[in-house]
Simulated assay, not measured.
Amino acid sequence: MKELNVILKTDVQGSIEPIKNSIERLGTEKARAKVIHAASGSITESDVLLASASKGIVIGFNSDPAPGAQQLAEAEGVSIQRYDVIYRLEEDVGKTLKGMLEPTYAEVLGGRAEVRAIFTASKYGKVAGVYVKEGKVWRDAKVKVLRQNKVVCESRLSSLRRFKEGVTEVVAGLECGIGMEGFTDFYTGDIIEFYRKERV
């Protein structure tokens, strides 16, 4: 789990607990905010140094930096965030937590082709002559080879040619020649699916 360390400063003592609770309940099972120090008063140089040491941020709620604290924060690369309304604070901390997570990707089917012929090319070994049935085929696509509805190989497109010319993509209804990384065992009738990764 990833943690965002927070040093919290508020204008009055009575604000500390509700704001601390608001910050800490924003977490998910993958990332959470942890208030490691909370007090009332101005944001001081020691707050900045604590944030720097813990790789955290300073949040001031109706609290301003004391003389020297802002300059020290800039020198240490520490973020001081000041708020006067709680919902903006919660919104920004939520966005920060989301940004800490590793992006997740899903495979999206972009095209499907059928092997109609197999050729031997001196540079690539065996290549498949395919007819693009759906979507499109593009260079560097991630591919799956299906034989009788079973995946026999997952690889990446290494070459894409049309009329012996290298091309970047071929759309449905056209034929082309393809080569794949580490796979040449094509059979007529194989279905090749082409995928791209999209961030979700």
Rank of each mutant, 00 (worst) to 15 (best):
L72I: 08
F61P: 01
D84I: 01
I57N: 04
A113H: 14
A66I: 06
G110S: 14
A66H: 12
A73W: 05
D84M: 00
A51F: 03
E74H: 12
A117C: 14
T96L: 10
I118T: 15
G68T: 06
G110Y: 09
A106F: 08
G60F: 06
A69G: 10
K98H: 11
A113F: 14
G68I: 03
V48G: 07
E74K: 11
G99D: 05
V78E: 06
E114P: 11
R116I: 14
E91T: 03
E114V: 15
V48Q: 07
R112F: 12
Y83N: 03
G77Y: 10
I118P: 15
G110T: 14
D84A: 01
P67V: 08
G77L: 10
A73C: 08
I57V: 13
K98E: 14
A106W: 01
E74Q: 13
A113P: 13
L72N: 02
Y83M: 02
I59H: 05
P67G: 09
V48L: 09
V115H: 15
S63W: 02
A53L: 09
L109C: 10
D84R: 09
A53I: 05
L49D: 12
G77M: 09
R82W: 01
S63K: 03
V93C: 10
D84N: 10
L97N: 05
G99P: 00
Q70T: 11
K95Y: 06
Y83S: 01
E102W: 04
V93Y: 05
L101Y: 04
E91L: 00
N62H: 03
E102M: 06
D64M: 11
I118V: 15
I80Q: 11
I80C: 10
